[in-house]
Design a binder for these strands. Structure first.
Lengths: 355, 355
DNA sequence: AAATTTTCCGTGTGCGTACACGAAAATACA
DNA sequence: TGTATTTTCGTGTACGCACACGGAAAATTT
């Protein structure tokens, strides 16, 4: 097994009987080359399967590839978004040598105006690539269109939007994750206990993944028996709603049979956990999403039975890597990158500390 | 936020009033520098916090950093080991530009002689780093010692050995994984069903993680109640043992109460699944390890309830990255890198296809 | 046919580092 | 003091690529 000497620009030049300058002009198609020689050079590049040395390339070009992340700022109220960002930064460290820099644009995830402001600011900075959390569906779609016009590749993270075209979507298969939750619920409860599905919803937000999660959950129950679906109760709560005691109590009492399990379709499961603890609700199985610190707390003390992780850190990591592969290596990247649905119990929480 | 111009060797040279050649000699301490100037240059390097440009470095020194992987060949009988290798190769693709190459040394995991042969061959090739699966405890420890003498960093993968010192251990927290299995078992069965623990064991192999898994499993059951441990039966089966029907039947029948769950402490859980299907054993919960194709099959059809993944692919990826960080970036790497304990059910199997 | 423009292409330099070579300085020896 | 030897250091080139500059050839105009 011997080292094959890699093909350099010089080799192509010699082969084609031209100079390296000409080959370079062809490679970066910046004109000033006759069609005849262009074709010839391209043919040889293809024939020799030339792969540019990205080290030398990055070293020589000194060009700054700005990547913009446009995501909600991680607040105390919703700390979720600091994890994808951490993943992005982790990936950045591995590729920062190649002349890639990061610009962060935070918006308030309850304030669409702030999203518009920040996206305008971002566009005016002319990034080479964008990582976008489409929290506001309509506005995000418009931004996507703008980026498409400007030929800026966009990676959608966490939630998807159908319209427009993006380089990649990186997130979870929400339907699947709902099914996983249902499987766990049903595995622990059996066939004849009522289950409450709790949605915390937000006006004019992107609810797509929440709907999908509930759908997956229901599908599972429907599939196990004809009457499976009838075990499910459901309640929607406004995200900004203060005290949920009343709503929860009513939802639980209105069930024909006792509620033995609760599935919360997003990360606000800790609010339900608090309710359960304060009201001595006995042995209700509680399943929800995301490893927020509060959620971890209730997972450890047993009030929450399982959390489903969206692997936010890995989402961030994969996002920046997708742009790196596209921008620097010019490689094809997978359009839909669904991350595994992680099941977290008290017992395997420990080594998930940074996920 | 402005670009700070990075410190180059030239800057250090100017600052110290010497030439770049001298600085280079200091950096790589290859002598031929007087103590006086050495001290001075070192001081300035430290003061300016010089970080070498690994791009230019790799470009200039075209040296070949050979990394050796010494693992069992992935056989049909035990395909597990192709996954860590795939992870290693995935990582390799990201760093191959830096003059890193991979040498693969496969041994037969049932034949210690082949391990000795391959490790001797590996050592004679003088690699710069080693990724080692310590399947044979004693022999692996000796090899580790040899590498320590030769100053070759070693990453232990999948299983740990206590003696000797290595750059890193990358694998799973076996005790935890046993506890996770027990949690799932107990969550589904409740407090009063007998559970059978099945160990497939191999003469003179590294059984450490198998023992730990069982220990974790037992610990969980012991912790839930004083009598919890008494629910557990146990049976050991030789790995090379052909037909397991007799042993399994005897183990199940000898239980005072009916066995409602089986925990297999390694990837050979598919053999137990086969047994269950062939003997119409009814509704026994089956939990085991690793996403082998056979195991996936039984997970899909419901005979296996949960599989615990060791994330073999990620183990491989992290292994080569640890060596990269150590050899090229000269960064500290974490000594014990425990990977998350992944719970796989039928419903979340899909997106784990490559883990 | 000369003058001008346009098209096309080669040469040269720099990115930051590694290392070989040889010169200068320091030391040793006569 | 002069020569030989060793120590110490500076210079130059290479790594593969990007890009600026300028010049020759071809095309166009006058």
């Amino acid at each position: 097994m011997h080292h094959i000497p890699p093909v350099r620009i010089k080799d192509i030049a010699d082969f084609a009987g031209v100079s390296v300058g000409t080959v370079d002009r062809v490679l970066h198609n910046r004109g000033e080359v006759s069609n005849r020689t262009r074709e010839k050079v391209l043919g040889i590049i293809h024939k020799l399967n030339y792969q540019p040395d990205i080290l030398a390339s990055a070293l020589a070009s000194k060009r700054d590839n700005k990547i913009a992340v446009l995501i909600p700022g991680g607040t105390d109220e919703n700390p979720f978004w600091k994890y994808p960002l951490a993943g992005v930064e982790e990936g950045l460290r591995e590729i920062v040598h190649f002349g890639i820099s990061l610009e962060r644009y935070y918006f308030n995830f309850t304030d669409r105006e702030s999203f518009l402001r920040q996206s305008a600011k971002m566009l005016s900075d002319k990034p080479q690539g964008v990582i976008l959390a489409p929290v506001f569906t309509g506005e995000a779609a418009l931004l996507l269109d703008s980026c498409n016009e400007l030929k800026i590749p966009v990676v959608l993270i966490n939630a998807n939007i159908c319209s427009g075209s993006c380089l990649a979507f990186i997130g979870q298969d929400s339907l699947q994750s709902g099914m996983v939750a249902a499987r766990l619920m049903h595995y622990g409860l059996g066939d004849d206990s009522d289950v409450l599905v709790v949605n915390f919803i937000r006006e004019n937000g992107n609810q797509n993944h929440i709907i999908k999660r509930e759908e997956g959950f229901r599908n599972y129950y429907r599939d196990i028996s004809k009457t499976g679906d009838s075990l499910l109760r459901q309640v929607n709560i406004g995200e900004t709603h203060g005290n949920i005691n009343g709503i929860m109590r009513k939802a639980i009492l209105s069930s024909p049979r006792p509620v033995k399990g609760i599935f919360v379709t997003n990360s606000r499961v800790f609010r339900v956990a608090r309710f359960l603890e304060n009201n001595n609700c006995g042995n209700i199985i509680l399943i929800g999403y995301d490893l927020l610190d509060e959620n971890k707390h209730f997972l450890k003390n047993g009030t929450i039975d399982f959390l489903i992780s969206q692997k936010p850190r890995e989402q961030g990591y994969k996002s920046i890597m997708a742009l790196y592969y596209h921008l620097l290596l010019k490689k094809e990247v997978e359009k839909n990158q669904y991350l595994p649905v992680d099941i977290i119990a008290r017992e395997n929480l420990q080594h998930y500390s940074f996920t």
